[in-house]
Structure formats: structure tokens, C-alpha cells
Design a protein around this nucleic acid. Structure first.
Lengths: 340, 340
DNA sequence: TTGAAAGCGCTACCAC
DNA sequence: GTGGTAGCGCTTTCAA
């Protein structure tokens, strides 16, 4: 009888009951030992037997069962980014994960490709994360925030171009980026400014507010701003450059350094002098921009450190009843090099 | 009595029992309705009442409880990448997630920053994923594979430079990349070849095999190969360029296009003619490399499509007892432009 | 067509 | 010190 289920059990995943049986103790004891429960003292020989049994069976605790029992998780859910970001963002993201782990959170990126808005929020909520940190690519709606909070999320934090009702918002106002770029160009005497709008999907959440910022910065300065759709390939850039003279522009803010480098080369191939005939400015302050001739002017974006954000998450989790506070955390400043 | 726990319940997360109570049915019925269970017929009025109750309460099912009951998950775990990758890899990753979602898997990237080897495997195993697809940055050991399989993972797939015992391996032999580069250089008459070794952490898993491939390709050709440590910043590149003449090299394979662009600029600033005095080749075939003058030669890497890999994952999950098969899936070829 | 109840793996109370 | 056991939220037989 005690052997009958063994054949099946061997193929099956070991549970704490299996460990208990092998060690000749109760499941409770197994739990105490493996969790180092402080409030209960277990003799050293027993501890060793339990640990050896666990090791031998290759026992790994079942996170779902644990959190079901506990009534909460320590999971911080980051809706996975689908947009290629620069190295700076990458560093930030890495820092954030590292810092959260140090605070004993389990960091999980949830692939939300193909979901949006409330569907995404529901999918996230199923995992019962203690916090959700949205990087602003999947539209987080007030209703989505509500779904998450009702499902037990203690903190919903949005690093988005716009603020979202109900969430702690770390507003990264992308309009500032476009604003900086255009202000820089205007100060250097430019009056007819193109603004590159990437055709690549996923970038529109960034491109649109940057464009708005550009328009706003140009208002009352006498400068005009013109959107320029551009795909990230040489053909598209060459086509744009070919009709450059007809556009009558004396400057261009090219969304970011990647697009700026692409366009600058195309313009140079059309024998357009930079910055003489046309000034070019990007954004992100990539190292590669400094390697071009002329060196690419850019908008440097100061990102909050991952560690700081992690602490904010932790704070919000610990005091969930505090009213969500907004934080302005993106600084942007134009960096003048040679292309403007 | 029926009202007493309400005060607490209101602040609490709604469960299917709450939905059942509000709809005036049993929990079983709720489950049937919300899961559209085909094997049981529920009257339309009841269905509506249940759905309305769920909606009103903002009910979201508890994934942990569900999978605990089911005894398995549909979670595919991707150990999160901590290394900045090029747009090509990004596209691949995006495709993979999309395709897996279409196959009804829940895709989760698990941040494994600061864990390694078996610790990481144990952490992943706690989530009981049905499959793990490692992108080869966290060392996946045979023991780690064993831990995962014992915890119920039906498939462990490794996209790694080297194969791992017990796992389905999609070998992306990075040595080929280095080999291609050096073969290209040798064919163009170069005999003293530097190989850039990035100083940035996380890249060594790629750099080392690429270097080995370079060495192997040079063997018996009379060419010599010399490793050149380089950090990704201008100072490091300038320092390397400053002692270039002393190195006596007539070519350099610069790990990838980013490092190649950095180094090429530094060499040009030292008035070293490219490709006259020194040939430069990168890898990844970035668009930006084509924008430089001279245009950067590179190694183009053909990546498997995400869809294909997703199907492989699905296949492996459905037939877990098949012996793990290895697949060679990375093609590499040198692309000659102007810098070599 | 609906309901009652068992049980997934785990932990935390209470007994012993 | 250690064991028995209730119950977290869910699905799914089996009975009604």
C-alpha cells in the first residue's frame, strides 16, 4: 500500500509531503525547516534529515501553492517592453530589476504582445502581482488601474508620457524632449524645422508627444514646424533627402539619434551641408552620434535611477493607502555638438 | 451573520465564491460559465447573471489557484535578457512572444539578475513553467535542466553558444561569427588580426566563443590573432588607437558593429587609413554601419524566426518524452563593404 | 441544469 | 520539538 503509488510518484513532481515521508517527519516540520521559521525550534538532526531528503528528491517549493496560502505574492510585474530602447533605458531597466530583487521582490516581465488596455490589465491581474510598473507602452487606463487594485495590487506605477488616474505616476513627459530640441534650434537662428515621425509601430507613443512638445516650443517664436514621416531604412531616408530642397527647411529634429544618423547621412549624400544648410539634432545622446562628422547634436535625457524607482515601488507597496503622488522625473537638455 | 464579514470582504479581493453569492448560484456554475465549459449546459439567464455579477465585482480569476488545481501551467518562462541586443534579436524575441501567445501560452520573462546557474534554475522551477527557453546568458547547467524537468517542465530549450546536456538545444554557435570574420580578412590578404574583446560584463558569453572561432579560422593560414580588450567608450578606444602602430596589426575584427564603429573612428582620428593600413570588420549588420565612410564590413547573422522556435517549443511540450534534438540554426556570412 | 464536496501544495495555528 | 489539520481559490467529478 505504501509502495503502490510510488511508480506514479516517481514520474511526478516531488511535494513537501514526499520530503516529509522520506525524512520521516510531518509536512509541517518540512515547512519549518526549509523556511527557517524563527518562531519554532527544530533539532539539528531533524533539520539535516529534512534538507537531505529535499536535496535527494530535487524538491522545489511550488510558488503558486505558497502564494495561494499566503494570500499575497511578492511579484512585481513589468509589462514587457516591445520597443527597442537605447542603452540608457536598458541600464535603467537592469538597475530596476536588480534593486527590486534586493528588496526581495520577484520580478517578472509579462509579455503583453497583442493585448491592450483592459485586456492586458486583466491578464496581469490574474497573476496577483503586488505591484505593476508600466513602462508606458501598453495603454494603462484608469479602469485598468482599478482592475489591478481590486485584484490586490498594492501599487500601480506608470512611467508614461501622460499621467493615469489612480496610479502612482512617474511622468516622463516626452514633450520636453521635443521642446528642448526645437528651443535649441530656434536659439541658433533656425526658423523652418522638420520633425521626424518614425513609421515604425510602437514608437508613436513617444513620437506624438515629442512632436507636440516641438510645436509648443515653436509657438510665438516665429518658427514653423513640419512633421516628416520616415521609416528606418536607407530608401526612406534617401527619398526624404531627395525632396529636401523643396521642403524649404533649415533644421530638423530627427526623433532620436538613430533616425538622426540615418537622415544626416542621406542629406550629406545629397550634398546638403550640415549644419550650414540644415541643422540636425537627435535625442538619447548615443555614443555613436559623437563618432560622426559633424558630431551629432542631441537631447540628453536624464533618467531616474532604477534604484530610486525600486524604492518608490517598495514604499508604495508598504503604504498602499497613501494617495498616489506624481513625480516629475525626466530631465531633458539639449547637447550642442557640431550638427546644429 | 451573512453581513458580518462584508466589511472585510469589501476591501478584499473578489473570488468566484463572491460572484456565486451575488449571482445566486454555486461556485461550480460560476466556473462553468466563465470558462465556457462545453461539457455542461447552463441556461442563458443564469449565464447572464453570472457574467454580470463577475463584471460588477471586478472579478479576475486567480491564476495560481487555477494552476494549482489543474496541476500544470501554460507558462513559458524566458530568463530575461540583461544584455543589450541589436534590433534583429529584438525582432526575433518579439516574434517568439507573439507566436507563443497565439499558441495559448503565457509568456513570462523572469528577471534573473544576480542569480546564476542552479540558483536561477531553482527560482524558475518554483513557478512550474511548462517550458523554459534560455537565451544563453544565464549559465544553464545539466543539473539545472534536471531541476527544471523534475519540477514539471516539459521542455527546456537553450539558445546558447554551447549545447547543454538534457536540454533541447538550438545551438547558436558564436564561433562561426568569429570564424567568418577572420576567414574574410585572411582571404583579403590580412595576416595580423586583432580581435576586440568587450570589457562590458555579460558579453563574455558571446565574446569568448567568437574569439575561439577566430583563432580556429586563423590556424594553418599563417595569420596570427591577437585579443584586444576594449571598453565601450571613447577613451578606451582612443587609448587602443594610440598604441596601434606598435601592435603591428593589419586588420581587426571588432566583436560587433558597435565596437567596430567606435574603434574605426578612433583609428581614423589617429590618421590610420581604413582599409589601407588596417581593415575593420564588425558583426550584426547594423544599418548604421552602412552610413559610415568607409562603409563598415560586417558579419551578417541569420537568425531563426521566432515563429519557428515557438513551434519547436510547442512540439517539445506536446511530446516531452522525445529525446531532445539539437538544431543548428544560426547561419553567419561575411558582408564585404568598404572597410576591409 | 445545478449543487455539494474533494483536493491541488503549502503554511500557520494548536495540541501533544 | 513535532504532528495534525484547516483552508487559501479553483475545477471537476458525482448526485440530485
Amino acid at each position: 500500500m505504501s509502495q503502490t503509488p510510488k511508480q506514479f510518484a516517481e514520474r511526478s513532481v516531488p511535494t513537501s509531503a514526499d520530503v516529509a515521508r522520506l525524512a520521516g517527519v510531518s509536512r509541517a516540520t518540512v515547512s519549518y525547516v526549509l523556511n527557517n521559521t524563527a518562531s519554532v525550534r527544530i533539532s539539528e538532526p531533524t533539520r539535516r534529515r529534512v534538507r537531505e531528503a529535499a536535496e535527494e528528491l530535487g524538491y522545489v517549493p511550488h510558488a503558486a501553492a505558497r502564494s495561494l496560502r499566503a494570500g499575497h505574492t511578492r511579484m512585481v510585474l513589468l509589462p514587457a517592453t516591445s520597443v527597442p530602447h537605447g542603452p540608457q533605458f536598458h541600464r535603467f531597466f537592469h538597475e530596476l530589476q536588480w534593486a527590486l530583487r534586493r528588496l526581495d521582490y520577484t520580478v517578472v516581465q509579462y509579455g503583453s504582445v497583442g493585448l491592450d488596455g483592459d485586456d492586458a490589465a486583466r491578464a496581469w491581474a490574474e497573476l496577483r502581482p503586488v505591484a505593476v510598473v508600466s513602462l508606458g507602452e501598453v495603454g494603462l487606463t484608469p479602469h485598468g488601474v482599478d482592475i489591478l487594485k481590486r485584484s490586490g495590487a498594492k501599487a500601480v506605477i506608470s512611467l508614461a508620457p501622460r499621467r493615469v488616474e489612480g496610479a502612482h505616476c512617474l511622468v516622463m513627459d516626452q514633450r520636453e524632449v521635443g521642446g528642448c530640441a526645437v528651443t535649441h534650434l530656434v536659439q541658433r537662428g533656425r526658423r523652418a524645422i522638420g520633425v521626424v515621425m518614425p513609421r515604425e509601430p510602437g514608437l508613436e507613443h513617444f513620437a506624438q508627444p515629442r512632436y507636440e512638445g516641438a510645436v509648443r516650443a515653436a509657438a510665438d517664436t516665429g518658427a514653423r514646424v513640419e512633421p516628416l514621416p520616415l521609416a528606418y531604412d536607407e530608401e526612406s531616408a534617401a527619398a526624404l533627402a531627395a525632396r529636401w530642397h523643396g521642403l524649404g527647411l533649415d533644421a530638423v529634429y530627427a526623433f532620436n539619434d538613430d533616425y538622426a544618423m540615418l537622415l544626416m547621412r542621406a542629406l550629406q549624400d545629397e550634398r546638403i551641408d550640415i549644419p550650414g544648410q540644415t541643422a540636425v539634432i537627435g535625442a538619447d545622446d548615443l555614443l555613436l552620434g559623437r563618432l560622426l562628422r559633424p558630431r551629432l547634436s542631441t537631447v540628453h535625457i536624464d533618467m531616474v535611477t532604477g534604484r530610486l524607482l525600486a524604492e518608490l515601488v517598495d514604499q508604495a507597496v508598504r503604504t498602499p493607502d497613501d494617495r498616489p503622488r506624481d513625480h516629475e522625473l525626466m530631465g531633458a537638455r539639449a547637447v550642442h555638438r557640431e550638427s546644429t
